[in-house]
Design a protein around this nucleic acid. Structure first.
Lengths: 334, 334
DNA sequence: GCGATCTTCTACACCGATGTAGTACACCGA
DNA sequence: TCGGTGTACTACATCGGTGTAGAAGATCGC
């Protein structure tokens, strides 16, 4: 079942069928309907591999994320797929597992030419990997700003968002804010940026930065958040607030605090980052920063589509609008 | 950068390069290393579209799920991607939004020959759509058993799993078990199967089925679970247990119950289905049925790979092992 | 009335792999 | 010694579309 069959049935050349399918303008209405009727009658579907081989286009974009099982990335992927759909594009998802080697592999081999462009949400890459980003494939980075990279970014406003959360805690009178999920030694990742913003917010208010209250967690899962919270409690250090560098960490913390009978927010106020759906439904509901997932997905896809269409103007850096959602984990129940 | 370039550099024919890359056995070790060296030196990557055009294989399988933002499907996709990876396959995800038309579209047009096979998790399809399943592409259905369909299935053991949950509640002395998430009128979907199993479990214990305690929810989100729970509470009906037909519904219910000051499990025991990660970390943690996600993903991919390799034996129906995880939402805190 | 331009369509080579067929040599048994 | 089999490789057509070039008729300006 090929284009030739359709052409034969419609009594035109294969190229005319191709032209009809691709919206070439100079076609008589009569011819167009004949061709469309033939396509319909035969149930013809174009072989995208063949088209891609000749023309480059596949209509597929890649989305590389660390882990789909993390709600943030699941929800992001959902949005990206819907945004891509509006451009008639399909999304191929690649899981990197936040592993640097796998992240580089994705870059080096964008699925054997099967994707026209790449949306890329790196976790493990650093300044030293910038060279790898000078890809042949159009690419838009999501989430993180890798310092001084010559690539398009659609960024979470990590700094302003984190500061808003910290200032919210400070405004509630909290002074000893523990942090979950830092990555010691890391310079450019999300962890470093958010922790840096936390420190800045404290400093701006004339407060010292209590480094002993920063607890590492490599992967940002509920389980690692719970473990870090247990280490925090075991340390015996006093704290009256807890900032999870993302929501799953904070939710893991909520669990442990509840188990230990520590009241939230009375004893400890808790805040997170991401505003995943779960944050509205936990008990207590979680105060968090909405990074504008929908906007990020939409803008990133739009930008990528422009790049794929050949736009080679200077690279852009777009920051999405964040929004602080103050909920029970800091405000209490009304 | 094509195979011809590699061939020239290695001093062999393009076909020999192809043979090396595809593991053809009759190649001298010396030749193989020459070719591999050339591939490495040039950073060559095969054009999958070209290969697909000639050979059919793309190394891509499709995964059609309702919504990635639902934790169950995010976690399932994660597992499928990892299982596919072990076979050297990439996964292309299609979101159907549980919309019947979109589900049929996916079937009718498996991405323009771009996928070698399809894993398919239908929600909206029914008995009347069976004809559409007689696809040309190898396909394995996930999760649901569409009645009398001639297609491979890797099933959640919905009936046994749900019964286990209900029996657990009964064993705790609960007798008025409300159900969230039923789909009135539906005959073959997950909702119907799980609700049917619930009813059977009650009947088997000589108990009547309290139909007034079945509350509908079209989509199985936290928000719809919360709404259904509010309707349940507004009804004034007495109940001492609550079964969410999946975890997100149950988690939405937990939220509303907590807000209303209804104690779980003292006043109402709550159970769900899916064992998403979140169920271990909610407060209280959620009793739920683990449908064996990892096993489902692995078996489904294995089966699909066999079908893609040409195995045309009779269609199989594999049920994964479920496991009941009894947690605080039914047992209380120890 | 004639070249120029626009509209509509077609012929054909070609994208980059691979299946098929076939060559050439080595080795083996009778 | 010769046919048969196994090993190692190559030439070439081909998969199904699309870019390019160009043909043929219609329309237009002057």
């Amino acid at each position: 079942m090929t284009m030739r069959d359709v052409a034969r049935k419609a009594g035109v050349s294969p190229k005319t069928v191709s032209n009809v399918m691709n919206g070439y303008p100079y076609i008589r209405e009569e011819t167009r309907t004949k061709v469309l009727a033939a396509i319909d009658a035969l149930g013809y579907r174009m072989n995208l591999s063949a088209r891609n081989l000749k023309s480059g286009r596949t209509g597929v974009i890649g989305l590389a994320v660390p882990e789909l099982s993390l709600p943030y990335f699941g929800e992001l992927a959902d949005q990206v797929i819907m945004a891509a759909d509006e451009h008639g594009l399909t999304v191929m998802i690649e899981q990197t597992g936040a592993d640097r080697d796998r992240e580089l592999t994705v870059l080096a081999r964008p699925r054997g030419h099967l994707v026209d462009g790449l949306l890329y949400s790196p976790l493990g890459l650093g300044q030293e990997d910038i060279d790898h980003l000078k890809a042949n494939t159009p690419m838009v980075l999501l989430g993180e700003r890798i310092f001084h990279s010559p690539v398009d970014h659609v960024m979470i406003d990590n700094v302003a968002g984190t500061k808003a959360a910290v200032e919210h805690l400070l405004a509630l009178g909290r002074r000893r804010i523990a942090v979950l999920g830092v990555h010691p030694g890391e310079k450019v990742g999300t962890a470093a940026i958010r922790y840096g913003a936390y420190a800045e917010a404290l400093t701006a208010h004339g407060l010292p930065v209590p480094e002993e209250l920063a607890f590492p967690a490599g992967r940002w899962h509920r389980s690692t958040g719970a473990e870090a919270t247990e280490r925090l409690l075991a340390s015996g250090l006093k704290f009256d607030a807890l900032l999870g560098l993302n929501d799953t960490l904070a939710l893991g913390a909520l669990r442990v605090l509840a188990q230990r009978g520590i009241r939230v927010p009375d004893d400890v106020a808790v805040a997170g980052f991401d505003n995943i759906d779960e944050a509205s439904y936990s008990t207590p509901s979680l105060t968090t920063v909405d990074p504008g997932r929908t906007e990020i997905a939409k803008k990133a896809v739009d930008l990528l589509v422009r790049r794929m269409a050949g736009d080679d103007s200077d690279h852009e850096e777009i920051a999405a609008r964040y929004e602080l959602h103050a909920r029970e984990s800091t405000l209490g129940v009304h």
